[in-house]
Nucleic acid binder design. Structure first.
Lengths: 139, 139
DNA sequence: ATAAAATCTATAGCTACTAGAGGTTCAAGA
DNA sequence: TCTTGAACCTCTAGTAGCTATAGATTTTAT
């Protein structure tokens, strides 16, 4: 029931202390009250909000996205579609990233395999990087 | 044969002018000579080095990686394995990123699907984000 | 009462650029 | 040759999302 310090909030959430202060500074986490000695004291509501932020971050949402999602969740009905839009937009971005990374992975593995199969002193990593033409059609 | 301006180098490579100056500033691209009026004039060697940088960046190497790769390519033999190491390390990092992104993608799609199949006003995007327990086992 | 641990603010640093201000130089046409 | 406009110059500050440091204060435990 007792309110808790920033260190406790950090332990409960796994979020580093300076990061908590940073989220407050950029307006994501509401300012808690202070002790007479000016230290922050948090309540359950702060815990929930911080968890929301952290979970959204894990899912790759930007702080701006999160800001928007939070105002949506506070305001009246009819905003679900907006939250939906933000999430779908984000999903598309992630799919694109995956596609690109898989292509990179392929190119890198090819480069490394060529290296392995050559003679000991013919590793081509640097040569391949120097020469665009050696890329196997991924760009 | 003629040496060329920064704008020309930019056109030849697709790299923006301020970015070229930035690469010079951080020591990746050697300083070219200057005209009497203090403008940069590049030669073919700069073009090749910049292409090396850009290609490595496309493959997701950091500027520090690239710096290391470039010193390796300059120095004596026996360094191929180091270049190899950098590349394999990088490949592993990419594979990890892909795994994580695929998990994210799954979680996001699930979230969005739950939203679609519910009644019109029961979109759960915000609720799911608020509650860690609703994640389907991806963390 | 004291000492250690935790907290406070403020500032600077990180990556890899990008944008802007305010001034100079170059190249081409008249 | 002169002029004009595009391209160039340097320098500073801003972006995202923190992290690290310094130096001072407060809280907690003994």
């Amino acid at each position: 029931m007792a309110d808790f310090s920033i260190g406790m909030l950090s332990k409960k959430t796994g979020c580093k202390v300076p990061t908590i202060r940073y989220y407050e500074q950029v307006g994501l986490l509401p300012e808690p009250y202070r002790t007479e000695g000016n230290q922050r004291r948090y309540q359950t509501k702060h815990l929930h909000i911080l968890q929301f932020i952290l979970h959204s971050r894990e899912l790759g949402f930007t702080l701006d996205d999160i800001r928007e999602l939070m105002t949506l969740s506070k305001s009246d009905e009819g905003n679900e579609h907006k939250a939906d839009d933000i999430a779908s937009r984000h999903l598309k971005a992630i799919e694109l990233k995956i596609t690109r990374l898989v292509a990179l992975k392929t190119e890198l593995s090819t480069m490394l395999k060529e290296c392995e199969h050559g003679q000991a002193d013919s590793c081509r990593v640097i040569d391949v990087l120097s020469d665009h033409m050696l890329c196997k059609g991924t760009h």
